[in-house]
Design a protein around this nucleic acid. Structure first.
Length: 351
DNA sequence: TAGGCCATCTGGTCCT
DNA sequence: AGGACCAGATGGCCTA
């Protein structure tokens, strides 16, 4: 999955070829959408044709006359303008400009996606997450962080990782596991029906505090180099609390059996919607006690999307004091890490 | 070789 | 009219 090299090659090739692509009369006549690459031969023919006609502009009218044969029945409806040479050239220029804009737009989109890759867990230059996986992981990450901010409590790391990997493909899950040096089976209950998800993995790297001491990885993990799980991406273990300061935060919900938690499709700040599904699953969970915290938080929420985080009292107000604006526009891990650590410290020290 | 992922072209639609 | 955005189509590259 070394996508970066491939992408560079593709980029170079595209840069070399981009000027060769232009719309053709044949494609225009075809009407329907289609790959620009497909019409390559026709395209070249047309370009040659254009070049041949470059010297004479007066042929346009003649061609139109030829087109209207005497024996042919006249068409009804709006007369379709013929692609004269001048029109074709205008069209060609317009298409080339549009193509360039579209390329730039997609490059901007990819840049933004690359920025996103850098701020979600498991960033790796050599082993890029795919676009869709990046978006999925980001969604899970945002959701998990929203939970942290909303409650002001840190989850246990197994639950956190489980939340991160929800809905991700197996390779990406393996990558996350590789970053954490965890056995992916330990947080994928739907993929390991024989093994309860909340049970600790067999290896010594099962729990926080042991991640980077694991000498080796379990089967199924991708080959090195793994991505990195930045410290800010992990909710560090609090002293004296082996599984986190407040274990039930995610327990019984994220690491529950049965229907897997599915982060809602609503925007990340639509916390109430998130909690709606959370509460539902919590109630249906066998361990009702573990759902208590979610019920409490959910009960105070209003209908507005933001009030769930910033509008409430207690820890929610504390979250509102954090400089969330500072999260926008960071490029590197250092800044990100600093901000994240500041926020997490605020949470941990005030809770 | 099939499937996944990607970049690019393209035409349509909406907006300014 | 021109730009932004979108979705479909296509071919290339890579991996299992």
């Amino acid at each position: 999955m070394t996508r970066s090299v491939r992408e560079e090659q593709a980029s170079v090739e595209s840069e070399e070829q981009q000027d060769l692509h232009s719309p053709t009369g044949a494609e225009l006549e075809r009407g329907g959408g289609g790959g620009g690459v497909v019409g390559g031969e026709e395209e070249d023919d047309h370009l040659h044709h254009l070049e041949d006609e470059d010297d004479d502009d007066d042929e346009e009218e003649e061609e139109e006359e030829e087109e209207d044969g005497e024996n042919k029945p006249k068409r009804r409806g709006p007369k379709k303008k013929k692609m004269t040479k001048a029109r074709l050239q205008r069209f060609k220029i317009r298409r080339m400009k549009a193509n360039a804009r579209e390329r730039n737009r997609m490059h901007g989109l990819n840049d933004a996606l690359e920025s996103l890759r850098k701020v979600v867990p498991c960033y790796s230059k050599t082993q890029k997450l795919s676009k869709i996986e990046t978006l999925r992981l980001a969604k899970n990450y945002i959701w998990a962080l929203s939970e942290i901010l909303r409650s002001g409590k840190a989850p246990d790391l197994m639950s956190f990782v489980h939340a991160l990997c929800k809905g991700l493909s197996q390779p990406t899950t393996n990558l996350v596991a590789g970053c954490l040096q965890l056995n992916p089976r330990t947080f994928l209950p739907e993929q390991t029906p024989d093994m309860p998800a909340h049970l600790p993995p067999a290896g010594p790297a099962a729990y926080p505090g042991h991640f980077y001491q694991s000498p080796g990885l379990t089967a199924g993990l991708p080959s090195p180099p793994y991505g990195t799980m930045e410290p800010s991406h992990i909710f560090h273990q609090v002293k004296g609390q082996p599984y986190g300061p407040l274990e039930p935060f995610f327990d019984g919900v994220l690491v529950s059996d049965g229907p897997a938690f599915d982060p809602p499709l609503s925007p990340p700040l639509s916390i109430n919607g998130n909690f709606s599904s959370f509460k539902h699953e919590a109630v249906t969970a066998t361990d009702y006690d573990k759902s208590f915290s979610f019920s409490v938080h959910y009960g105070g929420g209003g209908a507005g999307g933001h009030t769930g985080i910033y509008g409430g009292g207690g820890s929610n107000q504390r979250c509102g004091e954090l400089q969330v604006d500072g999260l926008m526009g960071f490029d590197g891990h250092s800044h990100h890490e600093r901000l994240m650590n500041a926020q997490l410290n605020a949470i941990f020290h005030e809770s």
